[in-house]
Amino acid sequence: MSQPLLLVEDLKTYFYLPEGVLRAVDGLNLIVNRNEIVGIIGESGSGKTVTALSILRIVPPPGRIVDGKIVFDGENLLEKSEEEMMKIRGGKISMIFQDPISSLDPLYRVKDQLSEVIRMHRGLTDESEIKEEIIRLLSMVKIPDPDRLMNAYPHELSGGMAQRVMIAIALASNPLLLIADEPTSNLDVTIQAQILELLRELHERRGLSILMISHNFGVIAELCDKVVVMYCGEAIESGSLIDVFENPAHPYTKGLLSVVPKLHGVSKHFETIPGSLPNPLNPPSGCKFHPRCPKAMNICRKVKPPRCKLNRDHVVSCHLYT
C-alpha cells in the first residue's frame, strides 16, 4: 500500500483562554490516502474546524498546536518554517470555507483573486496566459459565461457561484489535497447538490483528494469514501463509509445516526441522545462520552479508551471492544 497523502498522528491543539485551557483537538488520528475523499463528521465543539486549521497551521492565537505529527506527502508539516508553509497553503493543500461570499475579498474582482493565486503558485506572468488559465478554471467549475463573470465582485455573485469561484481559486494551484470546511452549509439544498456533484466530478477526473468537514450526514454519505467521527476533540470512530454508517460501533455514532431524521421515516417522534455536549473547558474524565453513553461501564469513567481495530479500516475508541 502506498504512503498516505496525509497522516495526522495524535494531534493536540489547545487554546489558552483566561478561563482555562480549551482542548479543541485532543489526540486526533486521521489518514487521507491519495485519490480518496475522507469526511469528518461532528457536532459543534467537536474540533473539526480546528483540525483543518491545524493542518494548514493557521490556528489563531491563543490557540497552539502542542503535540502530534502532521505528515503530508512524506514531510512533517509541523517542522516546516512559515515560509515553506506559505508555499504549501493554497499550493499543494487548498481550502474552501463555509460562507463563500464573505470568504472572498470584497474589494477585488473574481479575475484578480484568481490571477493572484495563479501568479503565486504557478509562476505564470504573461497576462494572456493568465487570462486563459482563469477562463479554464472557471469553466472547470461549470460557471456559465466565464468571460463576463470574471469581472464580477463577490457581492454580485450568488452563493452557489461564489462557492464555485472559491473552488476555482482552490484548484488554481493544482493541489493534491482540498480541505472543504462545511462548504455547502449555507447554501440551498438544490445548489448544494450542484456543488456536491461538482466536487465528485473533480475528484474523479483529476484524482483530487478531499478532506470534507461537515455536520450533515447526507453530504458525507454522498461524497466520502471514508469517515471520521469526532467528539470533543477526538476521533472516536473511523472507517469506510459503509462500516461507519451501516455498522456503527461507537455508541455516540449509533446515537447520532438514529437522531438524524430520514426523509422516508414513519413516526412523529424523534430519537434523542440523552444529556448534552460537554463543556470543552472541563470535559468528562476517561471516555468523554461516558456521561451520555447507554453502555457506560465503570472503566469508562476512569480510563481513556484505547483505539481498537475492528477490521482493516474500521477503528473505534471504546472500552466495549477491547
Binding site: V189, T190, A193, F217, G218, V219, A221, E222, F245, L257
Partner: peptide
C-alpha cells in the same frame, strides 16, 4: 428538490440529482 437531498444511506450514493441553473 427531493432528489437534491443527499441520502444518509450509503447504498443510495450517486442517486443525487441536482437541478440545473439557479
Amino acid at each position: 428538490l427531493l432528489s437534491s437531498i443527499p441520502s444518509t444511506d450509503p447504498k443510495m450514493r450517486g442517486r443525487l440529482k441536482a437541478p440545473k441553473g439557479e
